[in-house]
């Protein structure tokens, strides 16, 4: 990938805050990252890491009590503070999103055909006949057998995996440049998950788009991503290519996380654990949110912690000494 080209999407010092009854929750805290053309970037984290809130903020879909600060540039356009109308246009056209539960974006009372053609008729001003052909072509592309007839079915007449394919097809109709996938395979069985991951990789090649893939499963990251952002407690802990992350995870959180996963390839007697509980966003410590659970904690951790570049394309936010 060529780094001289400006990134497709660039987030800088992104902050997402929610006002709740007991105070202010900072779900995302000073997040900066870039997404380049036709790459798959993973965002991993546990619950409360802010990974989903980041994406909702990018899409302007935060709940009513949420507030976004910082800057997100997509193709040179600033997304933070953009009017809803313009954002809607962009969302339908150049940025698409798929969710864990396909039914959140499919209307159960409408046939797939009318939902898919509506998108094209609205955004591309296509006549119905042409839109229908295009929709069928897209269903073929996501490998739905007998697409020509099955397009006239209702969403509930598809199985879970097929429904996910329908949602992917629908999100790709307008040939977006960026696809945001929020845990799209979490609810699926492994065999179906493998199908969907393969499909996404193929589609990415074919349509030359970038994918932001949000997940909590390091295995899925290893399978599909080129680069990965590791998040914890609203912080971006480490950014690197997946080879770097899995071979030399420098951040104590990343390396601890990788060690806790039972691996199908090699056995251990006892799993390593990360002590303590997931972060409570209402009562985060000063400085690094991982401090209470970190094995390499030092007094410096409660101060300002800058982003450090450790290797080319490998950045982390931690005070720990790194043996080069």
């Amino acid at each position: 990938m060529d780094n001289k080209k400006p990134p497709l999407l660039e987030a800088r010092d992104l902050v997402v805050e929610f006002k709740v009854q007991d105070g202010l929750v900072r779900a995302v805290n000073g997040l900066s990252f870039k997404v380049y053309d036709s790459e798959i970037i993973g965002i991993v984290g546990e619950s409360g890491s802010g990974k989903s809130q980041t994406m909702l903020a990018l899409m302007g879909l935060l709940a009513g009590n949420g507030k976004v600060k910082g800057s997100v540039k997509f193709n040179g356009q600033e997304l933070v503070g953009m009017s809803t109308g313009k954002l809607n246009k962009l969302r339908g056209d150049q940025i698409a999103m798929i969710f864990q539960d396909p039914m959140t974006s499919l209307n159960p009372y409408l046939k797939i055909s009318s939902q898919m053609t509506e998108v094209l008729m609205l955004h591309k001003n296509m006549p119905y006949k042409q839109a229908l052909d295009e929709a069928i072509r897209m269903l073929d592309k996501v490998k739905i057998p007998d697409a020509k007839n099955r397009i006239h079915l209702y969403p509930h007449e598809f199985s879970g995996g097929m429904r996910q394919r329908v949602m992917i097809a629908m999100s790709l109709l307008t040939k977006p440049k960026l696809l945001i996938a929020d845990e799209p395979t979490t609810a699926l069985d492994v065999t179906v998950q493998a199908q969907i991951l393969e499909l996404l990789k193929e589609l990415k090649q074919e349509m030359n788009m970038s994918i932001i893939f949000i997940t909590h499963d390091m295995g899925v990251v290893a399978n599909i991503c080129d680069r990965v952002n590791v998040m914890y407690g609203g912080w971006l802990m480490e950014t690197a290519t997946i080879e770097q992350v899995f071979a030399t995870p420098y951040h104590p959180y990343t390396s601890a996380l990788l060690e806790t996963i039972p691996n199908i390839e090699h056995d251990v007697d006892k799993l390593k654990t990360i002590p303590g509980e997931p972060p409570n966003l209402l009562h985060l410590p000063q400085g690094c949110p991982f401090q209470p659970r970190c094995s390499k904690v030092s007094p410096a951790c409660s101060g300002q912690i800058p982003l450090r570049k450790i290797a080319p394309r490998h950045v982390m936010k931690c005070t720990v000494e790194v043996a080069q």
């Binding site: 295995g219 899995f246 199908i264």
Partner: peptide, 25 residues
């Protein structure tokens, strides 16, 4: 098929392994 579909936290292995994709549902 089930075992081959499990994603492993190891990118080199993931890139090279043969997944037996099951057809249909």
């Amino acid at each position: 098929a089930l075992l081959s579909a499990v994603p492993v936290a190891n990118p080199t292995l993931e890139k090279t392994k043969q997944i037996q994709l099951l057809e249909g549902d």
